[in-house]
């Protein structure tokens, strides 16, 4: 039994659509950050720098 041409075409089309769906949550997240002005990655860097300073002072 061979893969039908129409099925193969639908698989290809749907995989391309899936790539956009995979990206959607990431795009929506950054769009929200852009609108609200949030920069959660900065917070993480600050925490990392603060804990490094603490460690150096010990």
């Amino acid at each position: 039994m061979k893969l039908q041409k129409e099925t193969a075409q639908k698989i290809t089309r749907d995989i391309i659509i899936s790539l956009f769906i995979y990206a959607l949550p990431v795009v929506l997240m950054f769009l929200t950050f852009y609108i609200t002005g949030e920069k959660p990655w900065d917070k993480k860097e600050n925490i990392a720098v603060q804990s490094e300073i603490k460690n150096n002072n010990r």
Binding site: M1, K2, L3, T7, I11, I15, S18, I21, Y22, L24, P25, V26, L28, M29, T32, P40, W41, K43, K44
Partner: peptide, 30 residues
């Protein structure tokens, strides 16, 4: 640093859509 809500959303889509494809291909590729 990714907030929990967005992490949940990203993993839910990535994990389940990948399994959809794994499952579908096992039915559609002889």
């Amino acid at each position: 640093w990714v907030p929990f809500f967005w992490g949940f959303f990203i993993i839910a889509v990535a994990d389940d859509l990948t399994q959809y494809w794994y499952h579908r291909l096992h039915h559609q590729l002889p």
